[in-house]
Amino acid sequence: MNGKYSPPPAGNGEVLIREGLKDIGARLEQPLRRIFLQRALSLGGLSLLSGCAAIDEESVEAALMKVSRFNDKAQAWLFDPRRLAPTYPESMITRPFPFNAYYGEDEIRQVDAEAYRLEVTGLVADRHAWTLAELRAMPQTAQVTRHICVEGWSAIGKWGGIPFADFLRRVGADTSARYVGFKCADDYYTSIDMPTALHAQTLLALTYDGRELPPRYGFPMKLRMPTKLGYKNPKHIQAIFVTNTYPGGYWEDQGYNWFGGS
């Protein structure tokens, strides 16, 4: 700073002393500032370099995320609500059907059937919590379809349950809303687009292969969509909510594509 020194008005001792102290302070400051500057050049230089690398990595990740959002739109555009996924004869069911989750088989959650209540919230008319008996009393259907995992493998299974479109109409859901979100007993969460929620093959599955859905496949209820990849099919569903606010998902928040359609 080229601050111009203005002489203190004569006769003001206090100002004189203050100016003097400032001078001393400034002189003391010099070596300290030099040290700080040197530090800044070495440490700061390093952090600047690593900072740059971090920025680059971040911007690459941000760009890839942008493409992923674009891919969501492309898939929503490609999605034909009337197009059905292929169905297979029961003889083609993969046995045993593979277990898959973000945790191992030894950590499969046990949900108490008696205490179970399905929460339904958000943009719905009827927000009452459903018991398992009520869910089982709804008209059911079954289908044999291919489950495709994001890892590439696929397996054919048979799921039975409530067409999700029927359920959404029954609870008076706002079907013009953008998302349906799910929260699960295994702390998993995900969300889907409304057109897929209303697809004829989207089921709230209560059975697997004609029997009560076993814990390893998501007791008491999972969402089954042959039009989406495995990670979009949550197990052990505890809460369903209809919303216009993007809810994300367990894997989606880490970088898996949100639409995840097939």
Partner: peptide, 30 residues
């Protein structure tokens, strides 16, 4: 491919791009 190898071999991880499956898919689908 390495997330679920089709054949009895895996490809050397050091030669791959994306760090993990989600990252690799982002690169691939871009």
């Amino acid at each position: 491919y390495d997330a679920s190898p089709l054949f009895a071999f895996e490809l050397p991880r050091e030669l791959t791009l994306g760090g993990w499956l989600g990252g690799a898919i982002q690169w691939h689908f871009a």
